[in-house]
Computed example of a mutant assay.
Amino acid sequence: MPENETAEFRPAPPRASSTPWIIAAVLACAVGAGAAWWFWLRPVEAPVAPPPVASAPEAPVAPPPMPEASGPQNPVDALAPADTALPAVAESDKRVAELLAELLGSDKVASFLLTEGFVRRVVATVDNLGRAQAPSRMWPVQPMPQRFVVDGDGEGDAPTTIATTNAARYSAFLTFAEAVPLEPAVALYARLYPLFQQAYEELGYPKRYFNDRLVAVLDHLLLAPEPKSPLRVKLTPVNTDVPNLRPWVRYEFVDPALESLSSGQKILVRMGPANQARAKALVRDLRKRVATSELQLPQR
């Protein structure tokens, strides 16, 4: 699981203490990008606004690609009417930031989010969470200074494992995510949905629907395995004489089944069992609200 740009496996000295970090998800509630973000970890490099990039489904761990359809499977207008006076996605940053501040508070938005290119960041990140890589430059969250911590240095017979102290990094932000009011958040998502759909079409899906992709990714995240700690990791060997100035991006799971997971499922696994349970509870709650095809089923 070399993380290239993701930088989650960034070890501090062995057995060092760790402070809470970011779990990007319920903001997905706030504007529909899927509870996933509050669960995804921070980027290390300064993020840049992502341009629209066409990408095709690739990794076998990803949710199956959404088929072209004559209409959405999970129509958002079942949640709330869309705003008819929205700007184009390229000019939407100011309006989106204002609405996020009204919902979450300007201090929390400033602390945790990147509002520049926010809609495109959200769409790209949700789409990538079911794939092998979720580049951190596309995440809609602020970089944070805390580092990933491992126990053991890989020397001798002692295995290198994810430190149990890492779990504490997520607690404060899971609490914040759990406090986001889902009903008004999902209503705001529906109100802004034309922007998310436009950004999704820019990614290269002109005949597919972002809310359908969101539901598929949420379902995929709920299938993440729930192994018990400690989880063994190792450094991917590199055959080069050039000094590696960023060795933390070379960590991967020792267990090949865990290493083959998607980027989003790996994040859930790395959070630890208790945090993963809280994160999945949020994902389930969001899914109940955005999976409108099920909401429309007749009562029996």
Rank of each mutant, 00 (worst) to 15 (best):
S262V: 11
V233R: 01
G264E: 02
R213Y: 09
V233L: 08
A277S: 06
K234Q: 12
L192F: 11
K234W: 05
P243N: 07
Y205R: 12
A224R: 12
V180G: 02
G264V: 03
L231D: 09
L214R: 14
P225D: 10
F253E: 02
Y209E: 02
Y205C: 06
A199G: 07
A279T: 06
N244R: 15
A274F: 03
P206I: 07
V186C: 06
D241K: 04
E252M: 14
L231R: 05
A187W: 04
A177E: 04
Q276F: 06
P227K: 09
R246E: 11
V215L: 04
S263K: 10
P273V: 11
T175G: 02
E183L: 05
L203W: 02
P230L: 06
N244A: 10
T236D: 09
N239W: 12
K266R: 15
L235S: 10
P206G: 08
P273S: 15
G204A: 10
V269G: 15
L261R: 03
A185V: 01
Q198N: 08
R208G: 03
P273C: 13
L268F: 12
K234E: 15
E178F: 05
T236G: 00
A179E: 03
K207R: 15
L182I: 08
F253R: 00
V186F: 05
V217W: 10
L245I: 15
P237A: 00
R208D: 03
F173A: 08
A190T: 13
T175R: 05
L214D: 07
R246A: 12
A199M: 08
Y209G: 01
F253T: 00
V254C: 14
V186D: 03
A177L: 01
L258A: 15
M271G: 15
P230M: 09
Q197K: 11
L195D: 09
P256F: 04
L223Y: 01
G272P: 13
R246K: 11
L192Q: 06
A216W: 01
S263R: 14
S229P: 05
T236V: 06
Y189S: 13
A190S: 10
W248G: 15
F176M: 11
R208T: 05
N239H: 13
P237D: 01
D212F: 00
L235Y: 14
L223S: 09
P243M: 07
T175V: 01
N239R: 14
V180A: 02
Q197D: 14
V215C: 10
Y200K: 08
S229K: 06
K228Y: 02
V217M: 09
P227C: 11
L182N: 02
P237T: 00
N275R: 11
R213S: 04
L221Q: 05
L188C: 06
E178V: 06
D241V: 04
L258K: 13
V242D: 00
P194A: 03
V180Q: 01
D241H: 01
P184V: 01
S260M: 12
A216Y: 09
V217R: 10
L221G: 03
L268D: 07
V217A: 10
P227I: 05
Y189F: 15
E183W: 05
L235R: 13
R250K: 08
R246C: 04
P237K: 03
L174I: 10
L235I: 14
N244W: 06
R278E: 08
F176A: 08
F176C: 06
W248E: 14
Y200W: 07
T236E: 11
D219Y: 02
D255Q: 13
K207T: 09
T240G: 10
Q265W: 10
Q265L: 11
R246S: 11
V215I: 08
A274Q: 15
